[in-house]
């Protein structure tokens, strides 16, 4: 039971050099893997590859020894760095959340999402508030794996702690695998069961 990247190579076009070369990693269910690297080492690219937004040029992404499903709700969900880009600006937040299923009150409560926010438009919320919606949306889809691409970089420290606490609690409850991609070494050490440093291993 694992999500693995097997010897993947990736570059955005043929003129470029490889961004990821022969990269292999795997996450078990119930594990939290932190991927740590400075800027420009392909962290976001890796996140998009793992969640199926991009296809590796060579190598495979395997979920329980099978390729990622192309149709239906993807069991690997990506939460991206910029929440304001990941929600439709014309939708009210309620609609945004309901895109991944019916609303659960406990999730709302856990993330500190206030009822009044549900009727607002994305631009009427701050980045941190939006990110809570994005995390809640990914959790509500019933995913087995979460890829968190610097989800807390733009948040204040208190909100960071709050969000990670909920994510980790929820992951433990459902036995989810988490790949946390981060700049922040302290955060990585705090939340992860295992840390990979891309700048060394690749």
């Amino acid at each position: 039971m694992s999500l693995e990247a097997k010897n993947i190579y990736f570059r955005y076009n043929k003129k470029q050099s490889w961004i990821l070369e022969n990269c292999t990693l795997s996450v078990e269910k119930g594990e939290c893997l932190a991927v740590f690297a400075p800027s420009g080492y392909g962290k976001t690219t890796l996140a998009m590859l793992l969640s199926g937004y991009l296809k590796p040029v060579e190598g495979q992404i395997l979920l329980e020894n099978k390729p990622l499903p192309k149709k239906g709700v993807c069991p690997v969900q990506l939460i991206c760095q910029h929440p304001e880009k990941a929600v439709n600006p014309r939708w009210r937040m309620k609609q945004v959340l309901e895109e991944s299923g019916t609303l659960h009150k406990d999730v709302l409560g856990a993330f500190g999402i206030e009822r009044a926010w549900l009727d607002r438009f994305p631009r009427e919320l701050s980045g941190g508030e939006l990110q809570r919606f994005c995390v809640a949306r990914a959790l509500m889809s019933g995913a087995d794996y979460l890829i968190c691409d610097e989800i807390s970089t733009m948040l204040d420290v208190i909100t960071q702690a709050q969000i990670w606490k909920v994510v980790l609690a929820e992951a433990a409850k459902r036995n989810m695998g988490i790949v946390a991609i981060t700049h922040n070494k302290n955060l990585a050490q705090r939340i992860a069961t295992r840390i990979i440093d891309l700048s060394h291993s690749v």
Binding site: S51, Y53, G72, V73, C74, L78, A86, N88, R90, S141
Partner: peptide
Amino acid sequence: AEQYVAVSRKLGKSGGWVLMHHLLPH
């Protein structure tokens, strides 16, 4: 090319659904 369209596909929505709910209103 917007991210929320890609997210919508990953949440299991079909191309037609995305067209009706994300693209046409815009």
